[in-house]
Design a protein around this nucleic acid. Structure first.
Lengths: 152, 152
DNA sequence: TATTGTTATACTCTATAACTATA
DNA sequence: TATAGTTATAGAGTATAACAATA
């Protein structure tokens, strides 16, 4: 990106445009700004949001299969393979064949993976704080609630 | 995407996970769902959200330069070139050298471009309606307001 | 000397199909 | 026969650097 500072330059002139009121555009822009900031911070740990997401779900105790990760994260199964490969190579997660269905592989975190997740979560929370800085605590809760309704 | 139906499959099992409450993730997922639906509908007109966004701003009467489009849409200047090329080839917009700064090119819609925009906007509004179906009218307005604070 | 638009290029991300092992 | 994971590959999207025209 060889653009100026960070794209928030002359927002004022166009924010009032019709496009600036369309939810589809607003969600895309908000998501783009938010995950850019999160990726910037996660880079300290050699992670991106996609790796963080898989690690987070693995650390949630639900023992997700790759197929479930694929569906929940809306990523192709082949992409999950690549993400889990990277996390496994650096010793953050392990693949365990599901005894109830030996075709499936359950993703479980290692001890190091848990520690990494803890630090990464702080980075992501920091990014969230930045991008929601203009909202009160109550507004942040409300935004989260509304987004959950849209996302699920 | 060789994934099941549409990724909303077993959301229930993971929506309660820690990740399912993080705004960065929720915005990405909501944006992904929303723009997928919008792209699906815009395909009838041979457009994608990126073309629609440029066309919308061009039709807004603010006569944006490519540089301004690049900043507002958070897209690289070289990508704007490609998008404007496509819109110009199909006769929806024109490039006009800015008389006040002959380096810049202002993007203005043609008559056909305006008509195309009208139909495309209906398609996008339809997609918005779908993805916000679970929200009341008041909640939709509130979501838009909060997103605008985050996005600008 | 700096900036706008442009081109070329490399890199990442995403989508598709085929293969294997299990069911 | 169908599904989970894997691999290979092609396509779309994104980032980077260099150039011509203009400031």
């Amino acid at each position: 990106m060889s653009t100026s500072p960070d794209g928030v330059a002359d927002a004022a002139r166009f924010a009032a445009a019709s496009l600036g009121a369309e939810p589809v555009f607003l969600m895309a822009r908000a998501a783009s700004i938010g995950s850019a900031e999160a990726n910037r911070r996660l880079a300290d740990f050699g992670l991106k949001v996609r790796h963080y997401s898989v690690l987070s779900l693995a650390c949630g105790g639900t023992a997700p299969t790759q197929r479930e990760l694929s569906q929940f994260l809306v990523l192709d199964p082949s992409q999950i393979v690549a993400i889990v490969d990277e996390l496994e190579h650096r010793g953050a997660v392990e693949r365990q064949t599901d005894p109830r269905d030996r075709r499936s592989k359950v993703i479980v975190p290692t001890k190091d993976g848990h520690a990494l997740y803890g630090k990464a979560k702080e980075a992501v929370d920091g990014a969230t704080e930045i991008s929601m800085a203009k909202l009160s605590a109550a507004e942040q809760r409300e935004l989260r609630r509304l987004l959950q309704l849209v996302a699920f």
